[in-house]
Simulated assay, not measured.
Amino acid sequence: MVEKTKELISVDNVSLDYGGKDGNGPAIKDVSLDIYPGEFVCVMGPSGCGKSTLLKILAGFIKPTGGTASLDGNKINGIDAQRGVVFQNSTLYEWYSVKKNVGFGLSMRHVAKATIAEEVEKYLAEVKLDDWGDKKVFELSGGMKQRAAIASALINKPEILLMDEPFGALDALTKNQMQNLIRRIWAKSHNTIFFITHDVDEALLLGSRVVVMSKHPGRIIADFPAPFTTDILRDNDDDIRYSKDFLAKRKKILEMISQDILE
């Protein structure tokens, strides 16, 4: 379990109201959440509950209409390299090589070419794309594109990695492989990860902590530690998903969400 010292991210009574009939009104309401260095926080809830809205606020893409979100005690006012983002569909440049995509952020910061080349090789190896660096992105499979997207985020050494249902569009086998990859990267690098998912199993299997949001407008209705990803890393086996403890927590979350939707 991650030792809680000083929070890295602090969300204090954050609300976002898009307003009017066209904007669809409030997305999240009075959300408060602290995230500590090294945590793997999985956030889940019903469709339309505002999970992605919360992530966009943390990324600095949009500003809340109420409350504040801070990183290291500083109010989040826009995007910066301290927060890496990985979406469900990769935002890579299809006509660029994998190497050029992964090193793009460093090149925009005018890092020396030799350093970029060295770092790109390092992170391509980290995501098991060593032999694919010279390929164009359009030549890659969906899983490979997501691995390249993860490498392009990690290479900038962000303080927190924000992931918005990054494996949602992948087939079951590739999804399992990607879950194993991000779990291993987290354990090795001690990155702080904020991971959005609609999949209860994925949240429990990946997160060191699971946050459950209510129906629209989203608010936090549960927040608890989850030991399963640590157990998987220790035993190199994800059969824990069939354990009584796992199935009980899974059932509790599903019942919680179902009850909230029906209220």
Rank of each mutant, 00 (worst) to 15 (best):
E3W: 04
K4C: 06
K4G: 04
T5K: 15
T5M: 10
K6V: 11
E7T: 10
I9W: 04
D12N: 14
D17E: 03
G20Q: 03
G23C: 01
G25V: 03
P26N: 01
P26Y: 03
I28A: 02
I28V: 13
K29Q: 14
K29S: 13
L33T: 00
Y36G: 08
G38W: 03
F40K: 05
V41S: 02
C42V: 01
M44Y: 01
G45N: 01
P46S: 01
G48A: 00
G50A: 06
S52P: 04
I57E: 04
P64T: 01
T65W: 02
G67V: 07
T68V: 13
A69D: 02
D72I: 00
D72Q: 10
G78Q: 06
G78C: 04
I79F: 08
A81F: 10
G84T: 03
N89W: 08
N89S: 13
S90L: 02
L92W: 05
V98S: 08
S107A: 12
M108S: 01
H110T: 03
H110Y: 07
A112R: 12
A114K: 15
T115I: 13
T115H: 09
I116Q: 11
A117H: 08
E118H: 12
E121K: 13
K122C: 00
Y123D: 06
V127M: 09
K128L: 10
W132N: 11
K135Y: 14
K136Q: 15
K136V: 09
S141V: 05
M144V: 05
I150A: 06
A153Q: 11
L154T: 09
P158I: 09
I160A: 14
L162R: 11
E165P: 10
A172Y: 13
A172L: 11
L173F: 15
K175E: 12
N176I: 03
M178Y: 04
Q179C: 01
N180M: 10
R183T: 03
R184S: 13
R184I: 00
K188L: 07
H190K: 15
I196A: 05
T197A: 09
H198N: 07
D199W: 07
V200W: 02
D201R: 11
E202S: 05
L204G: 09
L205A: 12
L205F: 02
S208T: 15
V210T: 14
V212D: 11
H216N: 15
G218V: 10
F224S: 10
P225W: 07
A226R: 02
F228L: 04
T229H: 04
D231H: 11
I232M: 11
D238H: 09
D239H: 13
S243F: 01
A248T: 14
A248D: 14
K249V: 00
K251P: 01
K252E: 15
L254F: 09
I257E: 09
D260E: 14
E263I: 12
